[in-house]
Design a protein around this nucleic acid. Structure first.
Lengths: 156, 156
DNA sequence: CCATATAGTCAACGAGGTTGTCCGTTATGT
DNA sequence: ACATAACGGACAACCTCGTTGACTATATGG
């Protein structure tokens, strides 16, 4: 009979597993022509969505102030991943949209994530991977995109 | 037959699970007299270790510059969690040690982590929790404490 | 004995977050 | 219809926490 591991191991392993996957993703993105993307950017792209968004909306979704969201957009605009256009129906709003390059990064990310997942299925076995995902779903909130991560990743 | 989930779900769930546990920990620490501790601090305490450490060593272990490590120590010293004493064998070194309060925080953290783990064992079942931990061990590096997290958590 | 390496500290800077303020535009209520 | 409130965006000042560079004091080894 083996004894229980200390309680602090699980959260550490969860975080390490996250890091391993994200590091893999960004090594690939780097190799595929997106060396400047940082982990945070994926969340921002996702929050922008296919129809675009505004800085205020973005801030709400990401859990930061509208000013912080505005700075993020500015930086992504400089990198060529988003553009800001004015809303014809509301002169106050400026709609942030992904550029072709932004869409490309998002598509590549999706493909890389799927490749990583199938690697893991190969290592753990498909059933164990399923069970892992099921268990994680059981202990996390349902809403995947309510992450509220402010300065967790360097966005420089 | 159900289809595979998109590859991006797993890393998100891993991160969310980590967040859920860490948020739980710090809500408890808050209630038990350590409201100022932030997630990063646990890693710093661990890096200091029972025999103390120096700022340079700390920086190496945490993956930050010695100056950044020094600032962390300064802040923890102001909060009463560590003290700096001079090394009698080497007048250059100042050894950082946990205070009684620091040791208390570490002991409480360990107890809270164990409580959280047993909660999870109740929700998933002990076997599923074991399997989860085994699978995570399989996909993460063996060395738990080589985390290299610089500004991942707010330390304020 | 002197050259080099190490520990700590100070200063300047940058990234990225915050709050407060202001302006122009839209929505609302009487 | 018009006064007022709410909203979106931008600007400024500030904070925290990381960085690099320079400098001092102490060890250490040829």
């Amino acid at each position: 009979m083996s004894s229980d591991p200390p309680g602090f191991e699980l959260p550490l392993r969860l975080f390490l597993a996250f890091r391993v996957i994200i590091d893999d993703l960004h090594a690939e993105l780097d190799a595929q022509g997106h060396p400047d993307l940082r982990p945070m950017h994926g969340f921002v792209f996702q929050a922008i969505g296919p129809d675009g968004s505004t800085a205020v909306e973005l801030g709400r979704r990401l859990g930061v102030s509208k000013q912080a969201a505005g700075k993020m957009v500015e930086s992504l605009e400089r990198m060529g991943y988003v553009v800001r256009t004015s809303d014809p129906d509301d002169a106050r709003r400026k709609i942030v949209r992904l550029t072709e390059r932004g869409v490309d990064a998002l598509a590549r990310s999706a493909r890389i994530f799927d490749r990583i997942r199938s690697d893991l299925a190969g290592r753990l076995g498909p059933d164990r991977l399923r069970a892992l995902e099921d268990d994680l779903r059981a202990i996390t909130p349902a809403d995947l995109w309510r992450l509220d991560m402010p300065g967790w990743f360097g966005t420089s």
